[in-house]
Amino acid sequence: MSVAELFHVPAKFELKDADASRKLIGSSTGQKSEDKQADKLQTTALAEQISGLQEVFAANHDHKLLVILQGMDTSGKDGTVKSVFGQLHPLGARTVAFKAPSQAEKDRDFLWRVHKEVPGKGEIVIFNRSHYEDVLISKVHGWIDDTECERRYVHIRDFERMLVETGTIVLKFFLHISNAEQKQRLEERLADPDKHWKFDMQDLAERVHWEAYQRAYERALTATDTREAPWYVVPSDSKTQRNLVIASIVDERLASLNLKYPPGNLEYSKLIVE
């Protein structure tokens, strides 16, 4: 069974049954420090492979790859970008971090600002948060009702299907952390002066709505998991396991394309030799 199959959201899914600390690959030594080191080494090796696959991916200039990272505050979206995708060539890859929409973006449909950021041919784009924010936070805070929420899920399914049908590979990762782990990470940010810049009082405000967010994510994952654009639930209490799982799935998907370098134009090669 592939890593993707192990972590694909099940048909009957309840987030309360998903263990955020479960370790399903690696971690065979029984020693925490040794396991973490092994995870890091494997992730680094996979990141190098992904970087190599990126080159042939870009050379073919055919497919597009969109990676979506969603999760509660402190779940590790930034860390995933750095550890898994940090070796990608910047000319063929970019990360888009979606913040609160501007007035101009609010004046248009919620997918407008997202559509213009999707990858072009041969490009890899990572969404640090995404169009799902316009359903999740809006539903939790009561800015949209159930009817509008379900309507947006329909729009998202149609949008992602359109992307896939026009050559985009869509991989969606939910970085699942426990309530206790989030509390610990927030406390670590407060305790370390070098991490104060990462602390935002809004994180505490949103933490109050933890249960509502869990229900919202559960519905989002089940409503928008499709064959074309699957969701993967990644246990993220362990940062090293989180990175290893995501790197493994991305590597598997790119390798499955079996891409080869396209033939070059050698018409004028003799002139160079001469």
Results as ranks from 00 to 15, higher is better:
residue 81 V to D: 00
residue 230 P to G: 10
residue 114 V to K: 04
residue 248 S to I: 06
residue 54 Q to C: 02
residue 226 T to L: 02
residue 41 L to R: 15
residue 232 Y to D: 10
residue 140 V to I: 14
residue 212 A to F: 02
residue 145 D to F: 03
residue 99 K to I: 04
residue 201 M to K: 09
residue 39 D to Y: 10
residue 94 R to H: 06
residue 73 D to A: 06
residue 148 E to K: 11
residue 68 I to M: 12
residue 57 F to V: 04
residue 203 D to N: 03
residue 129 R to G: 04
residue 210 W to G: 13
residue 151 R to S: 15
residue 145 D to V: 06
residue 204 L to M: 13
residue 44 T to A: 13
residue 244 L to Y: 11
residue 142 G to N: 11
residue 240 T to C: 03
residue 120 G to W: 00
residue 134 D to V: 01
residue 126 I to N: 12
residue 189 R to W: 08
residue 141 H to L: 01
residue 209 H to R: 04
residue 152 R to N: 08
residue 208 V to K: 14
residue 38 A to H: 01
residue 218 E to Q: 15
residue 223 A to M: 13
residue 179 N to A: 12
residue 69 L to C: 09
residue 260 K to M: 11
residue 201 M to G: 03
residue 99 K to F: 06
residue 20 A to F: 02
residue 24 L to Y: 10
residue 78 D to K: 07
residue 223 A to K: 14
residue 70 Q to R: 12
residue 108 R to Q: 05
residue 30 G to T: 02
residue 73 D to V: 09
residue 128 N to C: 06
residue 114 V to M: 13
residue 2 S to V: 03
residue 191 A to T: 12
residue 140 V to W: 05
residue 145 D to C: 03
residue 56 V to M: 01
residue 117 E to F: 05
residue 55 E to F: 04
residue 146 D to E: 15
residue 217 Y to M: 01
residue 61 H to S: 14
residue 134 D to W: 02
residue 50 I to H: 05
residue 174 F to W: 15
residue 14 E to Y: 05
residue 164 V to M: 05
residue 236 S to F: 02
residue 259 L to E: 08
residue 274 E to F: 10
residue 152 R to H: 07
residue 49 Q to H: 08
residue 59 A to G: 02
residue 138 S to M: 05
residue 158 D to N: 10
residue 67 V to N: 01
residue 52 G to T: 00
residue 108 R to V: 01
residue 248 S to E: 06
residue 66 L to G: 10
residue 21 S to M: 01
residue 28 S to A: 14
residue 165 E to P: 01
residue 218 E to L: 08
residue 33 S to C: 06
residue 16 K to S: 15
residue 4 A to I: 03
residue 130 S to W: 01
residue 29 T to R: 07
residue 116 K to E: 15
residue 191 A to V: 07
residue 45 A to I: 00
residue 31 Q to H: 06
residue 119 P to C: 02
residue 190 L to I: 03
residue 270 K to F: 05
residue 151 R to K: 15
residue 208 V to F: 06
residue 172 K to E: 12
residue 90 P to Q: 14
residue 198 K to P: 11
residue 105 E to M: 07
